[in-house]
Design a protein around this nucleic acid. Sequence first.
DNA 1: CGGTATATGTAGGTATTCTAGGTGTGTTAT
DNA 2: ATAACACACCTAGAATACCTACATATACCG
Lengths: 111, 111
Amino acid sequence: MAEEKAEFLKGTLDMLILKVVALGPIHGYAIAQRIQQISRDFFQLQQGSLYPALHRLEDRGWLRAAWKATETGREAKFYALTPKGRKQLEAEVRNWEQMTDAVALILRTAE
Amino acid sequence: MAEEKAEFLKGTLDMLILKVVALGPIHGYAIAQRIQQISRDFFQLQQGSLYPALHRLEDRGWLRAAWKATETGREAKFYALTPKGRKQLEAEVRNWEQMTDAVALILRTAE
DNA sequence: CGGTATATGTAGGTATTCTAGGTGTGTTAT
DNA sequence: ATAACACACCTAGAATACCTACATATACCG
């Protein structure tokens, strides 16, 4: 009964989205695909997590959205990182590294 | 206004508590001190997070509690890991490692 | 022309953590 | 003596974030 589903560590999703958007303007649906692909299918970003997160990030001024056509001619909402978003990403990455280092200290404690 | 407080990644706390208890029977208050100490003050476990977490872990059969005297003669609730708790800890550590590897893949993506 | 992939979205529930309070005991400083 | 502090337990309520499930619409392919 112990579900082995690859959920997100709560609080990590924003950082991953910001990072993927930092690679270049991209629309929401493609962000989810990209995260899944790069993580080798470990993360499977649900739409019910994706879109609210994008709106949240936009509200906070970290992403800017604009409707544009995709390569296949569809309309999609493309997100780009704002300068504020870039700073936020940097801060979140720093924090992530400190956090994982701190966790590693505890996990490696022997005796 | 951007608070730089070292909060826990939600979902990580249980693993850290299980790990500290795995080092040997210990009471709640000391668990918080130990986590703070080992993490070099990065994590500061609040009592409002600590005690509900301990009750949760006990309810799930991962910890067993017993009142005993501390070294200084006070009464305190000592927690010990159950066999189920040990398996849970192992599963959570495995999952943590997979998760951080997956995050690392995304964070290291360049271009 | 029906199904699948693309693309966006919301509503409601669940779970976890934090803030902020509260209780009581023992020790130490004044 | 007593005040202050550290120890040790606890809960209620709010905030947050994620997931499940649903809803909509368009393009492409068989």
